[in-house]
Design a protein around this nucleic acid. Structure first.
Lengths: 131, 131
DNA sequence: ATAAACCTTCCACCTAACTGGAAGGCAAGA
DNA sequence: TCTTGCCTTCCAGTTAGGTGGAAGGTTTAT
């Protein structure tokens, strides 16, 4: 299968596939007599894996590492499990940070409804700011 | 106060302050006879506001807009309140997305503990992937 | 007086993950 | 045959929010 067909199946831009190859994420496929890339079903499945991993928040660098762990063979599952666990922790930390931000914003709204011209302790200064 | 002093008070790089000025976030201060920027207390307070807004997740573009709303005077509080509400909603959506990702990752771990060589439906293909 | 520390502008570079376009080669259908 | 559409490489640009460094002027402390 050529790059356009693979790209269509994955719903990505052909340029993206070339980019993945360039950064070492996707193994370079064989070329036909005209120099066109010829992808296999394994390439398709690997790309689907990449897309799924991306969708749950892994960066391409991390996916690359996971793929090379898988290929390395030395108890890759333990390592991949580690990666997943630390990604979950990362997500947890981000959720906590977001909840904190939300709380701060909600408090600003609450204070604002009491004292009309209030946004946060700095807004008064801003209102009177002159260049 | 000159740029170094302001930067120190805010704990940011002087370059950051010039950058903020460049993108129209911070009003250009007066210059002294040597061409050095001379900031006022109002600049300091505006910068503190910028940093707080950044900390709760506003982008510089959004902060710029909020600042210009405040300056515009036409019922700015209503508009700012809108911005805050939509930022809260944005945060809520992100939290939901993150929870979903976490759930997917946890399910992968659960399945993995049952069937040792399992990462996700694609891993088998990857394991047998050959270039 | 002179060195260190500060300031200026300008240009370029960083991350992340692409995307666009130019210039050119090949392929498939009418 | 001709046109459309695919493919190649290479170069450069995008977003967001800065950061680094060069070349040169100023100020402050010793």
């Amino acid at each position: 299968m050529r790059i356009g067909e693979l790209a269509k199946k994955l719903n990505v831009n052909p340029k993206t596939l070339r980019y993945w190859e360039e950064i070492g994420l996707l193994p370079p496929p064989k070329r036909d007599s005209s120099g066109y890339r010829v992808y296999t079903e394994e390439h398709l499945r690997l790309c689907q894996f990449i897309l799924k991993a991306k969708a749950v928040g892994f960066k391409l660098d991390e996916i690359k590492e996971i793929i090379s762990l898988i290929y390395s063979g030395t108890s890759p599952c333990k390592c991949v499990e580690e990666k997943i666990r630390s990604k979950i922790q990362e997500i947890d930390e981000l959720i906590e940070e977001l909840k904190l931000r939300k709380k701060i914003l909600q408090e600003i709204l609450k204070k604002r409804s009491n004292t009309p011209a209030y946004f946060c302790p700095i807004i008064e200064s801003i209102s009177t700011f002159e260049e």
